[in-house]
Write a protein that binds this DNA or RNA. Structure first.
Lengths: 144, 144
DNA sequence: TAAAAATTATTGATATATCAATGGTTTATT
DNA sequence: AATAAACCATTGATATATCAATAATTTTTA
């Protein structure tokens, strides 16, 4: 394998790691019949942490396009996990909130998610994890 | 921000880094009017490194679904950057190869890509890069 | 205050991600 | 050799990614 082959590119390895991890979690979601995707879960989690939140903020925090957020929220709304609440004196935005079922759903599955997080860093020292965090932030700055 | 907030999750930061970097490169592609996406570029690069290659191998190396490969190759074929060549005594697979234009295209843009790679690791020591590589591999193993 | 500029969510169009199903083909088993 | 099993590429269906355009609204500027 040559030096400049794509497998040796650090950005490729970063993407690969992300893909593998998402596939792992999605498989677990499917096995447990959660009926949602990873991207949907991430939105639910952000909403839970920040509610009420606007779609624009959701887009920023999840690094996704507002158009994409609109469509995913439509799905989550149909599943009755979130709701768009009108804001008084503001007819341009909505307050996005979890429904009662949405809150329960997040609570019920949080332990599994935490297990995934723990599993991802198994065998890593806290120094390695902190180093990883620092390096990733530097790369993010470089590419911003 | 709470400890278990999603911004503190290392997998979230990995994904964020990947997204930011891809967006950076795509912006450059668009500015330079390359007329292709990052995913298309990655396929072209893998083909260049390995040609001839089958679609199954392409899927494995790029960590993408064979169905997705089929569709992207259709696009690249229309752009006359790749070709599917029949394999003698094998009517199940194709040899995927770059066309002459495809080879030229990759060569012409390789310098820009290398610049992106350099930019991504600006300010990082070689120890940090090697450490990053090692840690990512460990996470990949954990989640496989 | 009126006009201009910026913001927010939505929709359309195209590309990608994934699973399931299909059809054709090759390899393994008996 | 015939059957079964495995494999490969493709297509359909649904979800996501992104840009561009739009409509409605809010904020800024003149």
């Amino acid at each position: 394998m040559k030096n400049q082959d794509i497998e040796n590119v650090i950005l490729f390895q970063i993407d690969k790691t992300s893909k593998i991890s998402k596939q792992y979690s999605q498989r677990e979601f499917d096995q447990k019949k959660l009926g949602i995707t990873i991207e949907q879960w991430i939105l639910l989690k952000i909403i839970e942490e920040t509610q009420p939140i606007s779609q624009r903020e959701l887009a920023d925090k999840s690094l996704r396009d507002p158009a994409s957020i609109t469509r995913t929220l439509d799905i989550l709304e149909k599943k009755q996990l979130i709701q768009r609440k009108p804001i008084p004196n503001n007819r341009r935005q909505y307050h996005i909130e979890l429904t009662i079922q949405g809150n329960t759903f997040v609570k019920n599955n949080m332990e599994m998610i935490k297990a995934h997080r723990r599993k991802s860093i198994e065998g890593l020292s806290s120094e390695e994890i902190e180093s990883l965090r620092t390096i990733l932030l530097k790369i993010q700055k470089n590419m911003s």
